[in-house]
Measured scan of single mutants.
Amino acid sequence: MDVCVRLALWLLWGLLLHQGQSLSHSHSEKATGTSSGANSEESTAAEFCRIDKPLCHSEDEKLSFEAVRNIHKLMDDDANGDVDVEESDEFLREDLNYHDPTVKHSTFHGEDKLISVEDLWKAWKSSEVYNWTVDEVVQWLITYVELPQYEETFRKLQLSGHAMPRLAVTNTTMTGTVLKMTDRSHRQKLQLKALDTVLFGPPLLTRHNHLKDFMLVVSIVIGVGGCWFAYIQNRYSKEHMKKMMKDLEGLHRAEQSLHDLQERLHKAQEEHRTVEVEKVHLEKKLRDEINLAKQEAQRLKELREGTENERSRQKYAEEELEQVREALRKAEKELESHSSWYAPEALQKWLQLTHEVEVQYYNIKKQNAEKQLLVAKEGAEKIKKKRNTLFGTFHVAHSSSLDDVDHKILTAKQALSEVTAALRERLHRWQQIEILCGFQIVNNPGIHSLVAALNIDPSWMGSTRPNPAHFIMTDDVDDMDEEIVSPLSMQSPSLQSSVRQRLTEPQHGLGS
């Protein structure tokens, strides 16, 4: 029994001894940790006062410096006190997940390849973020970090730009207890964004957000305005092209109309020559008939004078003969009235020469109109080809070629109108001259024959008349068809009918 009691006491004593040793060891460790923490804080404070003595007594600045020092320690893998190029590049790629850190790398180092804690602190103090207000930090939280649900907490804590380094380091107390961020992804996102802002300055999105919006609005307005302008120009170009094509079609119709007119003019001239020949034959025939009538009257007179026994018949025959003579005298007077005045042959040749010289100047004017028309046609064809290209319509709308071609078409039409008026006036004037003179002027042997017949020096006439060419005029020349008939041919039928009527009546009387 005593043995059992003793054994229990030994065990209890051993447990108490072991517990005492454990408590003693724990207290010694706590004392050691407290001592090392105090030494670390003293070291940080001493270093901060050495680097930035004016701010070393500010608790907030001291906390920010400690956060900057921890960031530098995080980047300094070899713990030599300086962050070199390789260490910063590795940190950007692995910790901040930048696949192309060239720009960030140059911004961080600049011309200094080794970055110490002092360099990093001075860079942070010179950053724009260091002077941010609470509102600017909240704006950064909303737009860049995209965590607007913590806006009220940031405003309540009055977190300005000075506190940004403390957000950039992993601090459970700061993010969990103070900021009350329960979501781990939110804490990590805030820490990475803050670290990027401390090292490289304010984000471009935050700094140029309004400018970007303004430029976007301006670009949209310019784009819409450009599209509207292109649409208006395209519609104007199509309308202008439609008008130009309509004018061009009018020129083609006028060309065909003048071609038909020239054919009718040539045909009328041929008919005029035929009528002139018929007139000469008719006059000769009338003279022959008059002579035959005179001979017949003389023969009847002689027969009736030789027959004294038939006085009654003779008297009747003499009366008939007197009627025939009276008819012959009237026919002769009618014929003489139409051919009583004949212009000198020299006057006819001079008038024919005048007509040919006028035709020369008319042909020159006509050729100029043809050239203008050809230029207008070529310009229209070029515009047609340009319209078939990809940007042809837009190019035509913004060039002056369309207006130039339109002006050329209008100029050609005006020139053709002048040529039309000149042709109309010339035909009418020479027709009236032919009526008054009674001989042909338009139809003549040609300028060379006339110059030779009148003994004129050929050098006075200049160049010879160009051959009539096919040219274009407007449709108002169609009503000239009825005026192209020679006035002499219009007189011939009346002359034929009057003479024939007077010759036929006596012959019928003789026949009876």
Rank of each mutant, 00 (worst) to 15 (best):
D95P: 15
L63C: 00
L74Q: 00
I71S: 01
L74R: 04
D77N: 00
E86K: 02
A79N: 07
D82C: 14
F91T: 15
V68E: 06
F91H: 12
E90H: 07
A67Q: 07
G81E: 08
D95G: 04
F65M: 14
L74D: 00
L92P: 07
N97T: 01
D95S: 05
E66P: 00
E86V: 05
D77H: 08
A79G: 02
E86P: 13
S88K: 07
E90S: 02
L63V: 00
D84A: 07
R69T: 14
G81N: 13
I71L: 03
E90K: 03
S88T: 00
E87C: 12
D95T: 12
D89L: 05
K73Q: 12
E90L: 00
V83A: 11
K73I: 06
Y98H: 10
L74W: 13
R69F: 13
L96Y: 14
F65G: 07
D95W: 00
E86D: 02
F91L: 10
D89V: 13
S64Y: 15
R93Y: 07
V68K: 07
E87F: 10
H72R: 08
E94K: 04
E90C: 08
D76P: 12
D89P: 09
L63F: 00
A67N: 08
E87Y: 10
E94Q: 14
A67H: 06
H72G: 12
E86H: 10
H72I: 03
A79I: 04
V85E: 02
E66M: 01
D84F: 12
E90Q: 01
F91P: 13
D78T: 15
H72Y: 07
F91E: 15
D76F: 11
D76A: 03
V83R: 12
F65C: 10
R93M: 02
L92V: 01
R93K: 04
D82H: 03
V83F: 09
D82N: 09
N97V: 01
M75H: 14
L96E: 09
V68L: 08
V83M: 09
E87H: 14
D77I: 11
H72D: 00
V85N: 14
V83T: 14
V83Q: 13
N80R: 11
F65W: 15
L74H: 08
D95R: 07
E87W: 14
M75W: 10
L63A: 00
D89G: 03
N97G: 02
D76H: 04
R69D: 08
D82L: 07
F65K: 06
S64H: 11
A79F: 04
E94P: 08
L74F: 13
V83K: 10
L63Q: 11
E66N: 12
Y98K: 13
S88W: 05
D76S: 14
A67S: 06
F65L: 01
L74I: 05
H72A: 09
N97L: 01
D76Y: 05
R93T: 05
K73W: 03
D84R: 13
E90D: 00
D89Y: 03
L96P: 09
D82W: 13
D77M: 14
D82R: 14
R93A: 11
F65Y: 09
K73E: 02
S64D: 13
G81K: 14
N80W: 13
N70D: 00
V83D: 14
R69K: 01
V85Y: 12
N97H: 02
E66C: 10
D78P: 13
V68G: 06
A79S: 03
E86T: 10
E86Y: 05
Y98E: 02
D89Q: 01
S64V: 10
S64N: 05
E94R: 14
E90F: 08
F91K: 06
L92I: 03
